[in-house]
Amino acid sequence: MTDKKTTDAAPRRPEGALRRGWTTGCCATAATKAAFSALLSGNWADSVTITLPKGEKPAFPLAEPCLEGDFAEVGIIKDAGDDPDVTHGAHIRARIRRLPPGSGTVFKAGEGVGVVTKPGLPIPPGEPAINPAPRAMIEAVLQDVAAAHGTHPDAEVTISVIGGAEIARATWNPRLGIVGGISILGTTGIVHPFSCAAWIASIHRGIDVIRAAGQTHAAACTGSTTESAVAARHDLPDFAFIDMGDFAGGVLKYLRHHPIERLTLAGGFAKMAKLAEGHLDLHSGRSQVDLGRLAERAVALGGDAALATAIRAGNTAMEALALCTEAGIPIGHDIAASAQDVALTESDHRIAIELLVYDRKGHLVGERPFKK
């Protein structure tokens, strides 16, 4: 579960030092502490401070507190820092009701928080999409507040996110079988801008869902253009598509230990050219297309010296592809073959892999059939 999603145009990383932010789980925990404190004391503070798993102590102003009858409810406005997180600015609320001693903590999904419907995720079907780490953080603050007031921590915790159902459409939740809203996430409570770890964790959860559903064929694609092309080629359910983005290594290394029968690995020519040379992180800021190697490939496939010179003098991989296409050199298939070899090695030959290479318009320019 994640708040990020692959698009053809990834957000550009700002220059300079980046400001950290707070996860949805952190905000839900802060709202829970503030609401439970108010429920027990009868008063609202101006702000609330929580202690995160690694010792940080962020403070949050309260949004729209409400103390009425047997419940207290309050919101926290999420600040994701400089991360391009779709939940930045979201209004995350916690409503707390006391339960009889011994009842434990009962989590409920309010408006805008999703409910898990498929197996394979850290939370079982039927439960609110509140991940284990935020649940543990929430239970910890309930215990702390209860101890400070000399009472028991048993409570019903309803987490909601205003507009969460709309926000969820820009996440992977619908594909993972999380319906009705976003997930409450975070292990440390901190959002690290442009975090690779968050994306790779979401890839892993997608594979877990595929395996739990008994789906034997999945597709990992670098973006929406290639995904649409693969969807037209293979009749796969929506959840069988893995939003790989630039993280080919994140997919292949996880499948090495959590295999399925067949994987279609698809991407644009430039990214697959990087994979063909052994790069597992396909981001333009972390790996570059080697035009010299493309020129060498073109010559090996029958291209002349003039073609090689033109490729080396070019600016982009797509320019090299266009030059080879015009000269009748099947460089796309050559890239597909080499990329498939790399993918098979990284997955330890545990799965059969089909490799598909597309141009920017979604036209197939290279392929290799399933091979193990």
Rank of each mutant, 00 (worst) to 15 (best):
C221E: 02
I200H: 01
L252H: 07
D246E: 14
G214M: 14
T216F: 06
F247V: 01
A197W: 00
P193F: 13
G250D: 06
W199C: 01
L236D: 05
A220H: 05
I207Q: 06
I242G: 00
I190L: 12
T222A: 13
A229W: 09
H234I: 04
L255R: 04
I190D: 09
H257G: 02
H234Q: 10
H192D: 06
V191H: 10
R233Q: 11
P193M: 13
C221G: 03
H257R: 13
A231R: 15
H234V: 09
G223I: 11
L255A: 10
I207G: 09
D208K: 07
I190H: 10
S228H: 11
D235I: 11
T216C: 03
A248H: 07
H192Q: 10
D243P: 00
A218D: 08
L255P: 04
G250L: 09
S224A: 15
R205A: 13
F241W: 03
A232T: 01
I207Y: 10
S195D: 07
R211A: 14
V230N: 05
Q215E: 15
H204M: 08
S224Q: 14
G250R: 03
A218T: 06
E227Q: 15
R256Y: 10
F241L: 03
M244H: 07
G223D: 15
R205C: 05
M244G: 04
I210H: 07
F239E: 02
D243L: 11
G206K: 06
P237V: 07
D235H: 14
E227A: 14
P237S: 08
F194P: 06
H217S: 08
G250P: 06
V191I: 15
Y254H: 15
R256D: 11
F247A: 08
V230G: 08
P193A: 13
P237T: 05
I203C: 07
C221A: 07
P237E: 07
M244T: 03
T225M: 13
R211L: 12
I207E: 08
G245D: 09
F241Y: 15
Q215S: 11
T216Y: 04
F247E: 02
A229E: 04
F194Y: 15
I210Y: 05
A201Q: 08
I242Q: 00
A219P: 02
I242T: 01
D243I: 00
H192I: 03
G223C: 11
G206L: 04
H204A: 05
R211M: 07
A197N: 01
V251G: 03
G214I: 12
P193E: 09
S202E: 01
M244C: 10
W199L: 03
C196L: 05
H204P: 00
F194D: 09
G206I: 01
W199R: 11
G249P: 08
A213W: 04
R256Q: 12
P237G: 08
G223N: 14
G249T: 07
G223K: 10
E227L: 14
A218I: 08
I200D: 01
F247K: 02
I242P: 00
R233H: 12
A232F: 05
G245N: 10
A219N: 02
I207M: 14
T226Q: 13
H234N: 06
A198I: 06
T225L: 08
C196N: 12
D208G: 15
G245V: 10
T225S: 04
H234M: 12
